[in-house]
Nucleic acid binder design. Sequence first.
DNA 1: TATGAATGAGCCTTCATTCAT
DNA 2: AATGAATGAAGGCTCATTCAT
Lengths: 223, 223, 223, 223
Amino acid sequence: MTSLAEDPHLDPDEAARQARGRMRSAQILGAAARLMERTGSQAMSMQALAEEAGVSVGLIYRYFGGKDDLLFAVIVDVLDSFATRVPEAVAAAKPDPVEQLAAAFRAYCEVINDKRHAAVLTYRESKSLSDEHRRRTKELEVSTSDPLRQLLRQGIDGGLLLDVDVDLVAYNLLLVAHGWALKHWYFEHTHGFEDYVGKQTALALGGIVAPRYRRRYAHLLAL
Amino acid sequence: MTSLAEDPHLDPDEAARQARGRMRSAQILGAAARLMERTGSQAMSMQALAEEAGVSVGLIYRYFGGKDDLLFAVIVDVLDSFATRVPEAVAAAKPDPVEQLAAAFRAYCEVINDKRHAAVLTYRESKSLSDEHRRRTKELEVSTSDPLRQLLRQGIDGGLLLDVDVDLVAYNLLLVAHGWALKHWYFEHTHGFEDYVGKQTALALGGIVAPRYRRRYAHLLAL
Amino acid sequence: MTSLAEDPHLDPDEAARQARGRMRSAQILGAAARLMERTGSQAMSMQALAEEAGVSVGLIYRYFGGKDDLLFAVIVDVLDSFATRVPEAVAAAKPDPVEQLAAAFRAYCEVINDKRHAAVLTYRESKSLSDEHRRRTKELEVSTSDPLRQLLRQGIDGGLLLDVDVDLVAYNLLLVAHGWALKHWYFEHTHGFEDYVGKQTALALGGIVAPRYRRRYAHLLAL
Amino acid sequence: MTSLAEDPHLDPDEAARQARGRMRSAQILGAAARLMERTGSQAMSMQALAEEAGVSVGLIYRYFGGKDDLLFAVIVDVLDSFATRVPEAVAAAKPDPVEQLAAAFRAYCEVINDKRHAAVLTYRESKSLSDEHRRRTKELEVSTSDPLRQLLRQGIDGGLLLDVDVDLVAYNLLLVAHGWALKHWYFEHTHGFEDYVGKQTALALGGIVAPRYRRRYAHLLAL
DNA sequence: TATGAATGAGCCTTCATTCAT
DNA sequence: AATGAATGAAGGCTCATTCAT
């Protein structure tokens, strides 16, 4: 009921309980993402989810407020992954805006590939969210795309990129990254994931890298 | 549902009846698209649809087989518009693959703008379709994107465009066209429709027009 | 549940345990009465009761057989108070049937005032009891009202009271005593408890005291 | 949907529909009162009600907003009967406050006897009502008891009755009237309805009729 | 053609009860 | 003695679909 800030020195029982709780959450969340992707969030019945997750119906309600919160939690889980892994990828890339942009885009795609089931929900199920949840989702989406916008801005300011509409290009990159999940069933047979990311990177950068720097980024622009 | 080519020799009563029938269909279809866009197809109740359309529940079942058929009909209605208006736009454009490509893309965007409510359903509600309907929807989508692929192929063969992956670029163009409907609530405040189409055309072509022809298409590439 | 007369020779540990047990019982029983009065016994969830009582759900089941037994225990607790305190009040009053009747009535009212939460349950929740529990409740209610009937009979036999229907008058007195709990929210602002008891005593006796003895009981009959 | 004030000249179809609607309402309301009395309103399941009423579950929701509204409707139905039949009885009685008081009390008892199932609900189920419904119920109860208070006031002003607490006596009369429903299972074997009403009238009036007028109302005061 | 009353299967959610710790 | 995670049956309610008028 009352839970102090998680203290690692808490008694072991409490720690074990929390660990089991997190496991349960993940177990249910994963099952929910799978089912929602398969049939849509509205068509997913809680009984079906219980079966897929291997728990009882009642237990789902101990961990999540209800169907709405569950959808929200699945979406937040993806957006959180973006918030974690994209900055990591940027930090690991060469200290160059364009290289970092490519790395960020790849990171978006990788998260989407990892959480393919959940990623499409952002696009498909936003109407099923409550007003409050929709608002918070939009906030997260915006802040999630911030790295892209910052790098684009840096590239433009440094003369590496043409003076494009930053918001629009960032939106396109996200759209294309989600495109892998949306038509995954189609592309995984014709293109592999690496192929998809490489070609999309080349297409996207091809339209915005300043001509004089095209040679420098030839490894990214090669079709 | 199945309507053979109308017989011009039908008696006048029959003609009037068919006209009223088509009007009823459109009336219901429009209301359905609006409601589905507002809340998702699953959340739309047939009783709510009846009210929105200004008819009784029973009547909907006289014109459409059921809820599934209704969703399918709404989607087919959009895809039909593509099939009609894109070729028209191509025929009306200058006889140049790149010009025609731009015209086709604009036509896609215009249809999506006109039927914004219904357009998003293609992305959002495909999982709600029956297997048979989903199969036919995919078929239509593929044939719908044929003009793009043909024009890209022509442009590449004529040396006007770089040797890009035709399927991928066509997919991107459709993705971006639908992007207008998906984030319409966001862009309509920052970019107008014309702005959106112009900039997206420039971005897309900027990445694929062969360098030596960039000047010829400067009016399309201007950011 | 079943508690034999405690053995005074029990070891001290056992005694302490029993004491804690009784405290727990009272703690849970009080919380149950409060919650039941607030929302009805059916609407009271065992988890809510656990929270209100400050114990775990499991513990409730160690002390009470289940929800049904709990309701029964709450009701029995009130009826037990009647069985204890009414005879005490009668014994403490002057040795006169009418004085004792007034004292008994006052005692009923006092118990009801003390256990207002639980008292209404007798009226409101009898339908929620199992057949067996309902039977035993009725038995207790009847024996609970015995003092009233006996005193009325004595008064009539001694010529102090008119020859009224003993059962009916006893029933009325109980009804009016419970009336304090039923409309407590209303009367506590217009009449105080003392006012209520005094006036009701006067009204009830006013209708049944033999005319020739009205002066003797003027202190009870004054409106 | 839009229903003008009921016009007797409305087309016959509409009239027939309204008639059937009222029949359905009564059919469901009666079944609800029976079941609620038998097991309590909370324990009554909507499926059980549907079966008892001989309709489908869904239909209940066409006529009543839900379980809450149903309970409220049942209670209002009783209170409405009071509002109708008590004034009628007063008007039909001799033009004398005490005679009219007795007639009013009898009318209360008769309504309660007729709608025994529903009458107890006022006492038992008030906690199951929503705040708004409880407020409106209380309003109705107060106005329902107005005739009693008025007649008592008249009797006192005319010197026919002792100067008793009007609110309290009115409350007692209602309590005793409901007492017939509350312990009906007990009294119907020992007293008949007529016996109950007669004796209660005598008891109640016996305590409040001014001594000098006791002979005039001997027919009401005879035990 | 058109209506809308009626149906009932199925869904989300709650909660009494159990049991491993 | 005490906890609370876990279960699953049951209930309120919705809504796609039918059919008499």
